[in-house]
Structure formats: structure tokens, C-alpha cells
């Protein structure tokens, strides 16, 4: 069973993939809740436009999304040069860039899931909390948030899964640099491009399946745990 033993380079790719996915998921969560809230409850000019922009990565070819990110966040791009001049943050060809690409790709899935659960919240409960003395912020923290938790968890898992599988936008934006931006998917792709790489590709494929299954089971478990607490009246 020697062929099952992972090499250091492969471990690095797995480790990197997990780190990128977790960072992408956690960093996009506050924005995801905010945008989902705005789309579900807000009444403002340009709401359809915001909705369109959020969903764009779902419809566009990932390579196009990656290229747009490269134009915007590349060292010479308008956002990228601003970030590097003022904050010293460089995203292009770094793992942080890969996290950004994954976050953008997973964002529509996260927002959709959270938005649906916000729309399902009985607003009369929030009204009741208001009459009991809770300010709007407290109402959100103590009533709305606990009630949308299943949707938030589902959105997080979807975003994580999307990040684990993301390939096109990442490779276009931050390339495929071993140890820096070479994720699990990119590593498998690289293995398939060299003669005799099949075994390596197979090993990483098994790892990918295990991680995906674990994420799925974790989400089921958490949804059941939360669901037991929140039974709709």
C-alpha cells in the first residue's frame, strides 16, 4: 500500500487548500449576511443590480471571473495598486489571492442560502422582541440570527465546498505555484499533465472525496442540531 503515502508536496497542497477554503468562507461570512439582509429586506435603488453582481460569478465562466479579478486586483489594477501602495497588501500570485478568488466564487451560493432563511423568518417575532425593549441590533442578535442559523451554516458549507473545488478562477488569477497557490484541484491537474502522475492524482482524489464527505456530514449534523432547537411554531 505504499502508493497511498502522500508526499510532502501533496501534503502542502492539501494543507493550502484547507487554509484557503476556511479563510475564504470565514472572511466572506459577514459580507454574505449583510448582502443577504439587504437583498431580503432592503428597499433601495439598484437592488436588482446588486443581485446581478452577486450572482455573476455563478453564471460567468470561472476563467472570466479570474481574469476580471486579475484586472482589478493585479499589482497594476485599480484596486490592487491601491491595496499595495497604501496597505502593502499584495493579492496576485499569493495564497490570499486564491482565497479571494474562492470567496468570490462561493459568494452567490452563500448569499442565496442565507437570503432564503432570512425571508422565512416570521417578522412578527422581531416586532414582539421590539415591544419587549430590544433595539434593532439586539433583535437581530437574539432573534433573527438564531432563527437563520441553519441557513447560515448551509451557506458556509456551500461556500467551503465551492472553495475546495474551485479551479478556473484561481488558476487564472493567482496561477499554479507549488507551496503558494497550488491547491488540491490545481495539484491534481498538474499530476495529470506529467507522465506517471496518475498515482499522485489518485491519492489526491481520494483525499478530496474524504474532505467533501466530511464537510457534508458535518453540515448535516449541525443542521440537525440547530433544527432540533428551532421548530417553527
Amino acid at each position: 500500500m505504499d502508493w497511498l503515502v502522500l508526499s510532502d508536496a501533496e501534503w502542502t497542497a492539501i494543507h493550502l487548500s484547507l487554509r484557503i477554503s476556511v479563510v475564504a468562507m470565514l472572511a466572506s461570512l459577514p459580507f454574505g449576511i449583510l448582502v443577504a439582509m439587504a437583498l431580503a429586506r432592503g428597499r433601495f435603488w439598484g437592488k436588482s443590480l446588486l443581485n446581478g453582481i452577486v450572482h455573476l460569478p455563478l453564471i460567468l465562466p470561472p476563467v472570466v471571473t479570474g481574469f476580471i479579478l486579475l484586472i482589478l486586483f493585479g499589482r497594476r489594477g485599480p484596486v490592487g495598486s491601491f491595496l499595495s501602495d497604501w496597505f502593502g497588501i499584495v493579492l496576485s500570485f499569493r495564497w490570499t489571492g486564491a482565497a479571494l478568488a474562492c470567496a468570490v466564487m462561493g459568494f452567490p451560493l452563500m448569499v442565496r442560502s442565507i437570503r432564503l432563511s432570512i425571508e422565512a423568518v416570521d417578522r412578527r417575532l422581531e416586532e414582539a422582541a421590539g415591544t419587549l425593549g430590544a433595539s434593532p441590533l439586539w433583535v437581530f442578535a437574539t432573534v433573527t440570527l438564531p432563527l437563520i442559523l441553519p441557513g447560515v451554516i448551509a451557506g458556509m458549507i456551500l461556500s467551503f465546498a465551492k472553495a475546495m473545488g474551485e479551479f478556473g478562477a484561481t488558476i487564472t488569477f493567482v496561477s499554479n505555484i507549488p507551496g503558494e497557490t497550488q491547491t488540491l484541484s490545481a495539484a491534481i491537474y498538474t499530476f495529470t499533465q506529467v507522465p506517471g502522475g496518475d498515482l499522485g492524482a489518485m491519492r489526491l482524489t481520494i483525499v478530496a472525496i474524504v474532505i467533501s464527505m466530511a464537510a457534508l456530514l458535518a453540515s448535516e449534523f449541525m443542521a440537525r442540531l440547530v433544527g432540533r432547537r428551532i421548530e417553527v411554531e
Binding site: R124, L125, E127, A128, T131, L132, W138, V143, L147, V232
Partner: peptide, 27 residues
């Protein structure tokens, strides 16, 4: 600080009765 009892009870489904009763106390 006006208490309001609605036509439907509007209890918070994620809290026990005890915590529902205590909700207003926080504020």
C-alpha cells in the same frame, strides 16, 4: 417600555418558556 400581547402568542421558538419569560428583563 409598553408591554404588548398580540393576538397570536409570538413566542420565540428557539428559546424555552423560561427564557421567553426572561427576554424582556435583559432590556
Amino acid at each position: 417600555r409598553f408591554g404588548y400581547v398580540f393576538q397570536e402568542a409570538r413566542l420565540f421558538p428557539h428559546l424555552t418558556v423560561r427564557k421567553n419569560l426572561g427576554y424582556g428583563r435583559w432590556f
